[in-house]
């Protein structure tokens, strides 16, 4: 287990794909992060030196405002703002209905599920 950014990751995971487990990090950011620390594509956490793991942790900490909790909070705040200014989009979020002008006759399951003011992710 490696403890990175408050998360335990199994040693055998490939670094590049494990990083994509963090909210806000996709393939591109993960690749750039790896490039920044000279971590090759198939590297596993077992193969990383202590220094690299520390550096990786530091990089993620530096990115904290744009990943994980802060990003989730930003998302919630944005939606809350929309609701507070009384916009149509804010209302649609509150009603769990499609926000961007889709039809509502059918196929709005995802909107029902995701569109809410206290949206988590």
């Amino acid at each position: 287990m490696v403890f990175i950014f408050n998360t335990n990751i199994p040693d055998s995971r490939i670094v590049k794909t494990a990083l994509q487990g963090f909210y806000g990090i996709g393939p591109n950011i993960a690749h750039r992060l790896c490039a920044k620390l000279s971590i090759h594509d198939t590297a596993r956490f077992t193969q990383l030196s202590t220094a690299k793991v520390t550096n990786l942790n530091a990089e993620l900490t530096k990115m904290a405002p744009v990943i994980e909790m802060d990003l989730r909070r930003k998302l919630q705040d944005d939606i809350k703002r929309l609701r507070d200014i009384g916009s149509y989009r804010g209302r649609r979020h509150a009603q769990s209905l499609p926000v961007r002008g889709q039809r509502t006759r059918s196929q709005i399951q995802n909107a029902r599920k995701f569109n809410r003011v206290d949206r988590y992710a």
């Binding site: 403890f3 077992t46 193969q47 793991v53």
Partner: peptide, 23 residues
């Protein structure tokens, strides 16, 4: 199958390896 993180140091000492294959 994996031990609790509490029983081990947070940052494990990496195993030094000779090649990509040995792991």
């Amino acid at each position: 199958a994996v031990s609790s993180p509490l029983l081990r140091p947070i940052l494990p000492v990496p195993r030094r390896l000779f090649s990509i294959t040995s792991t």
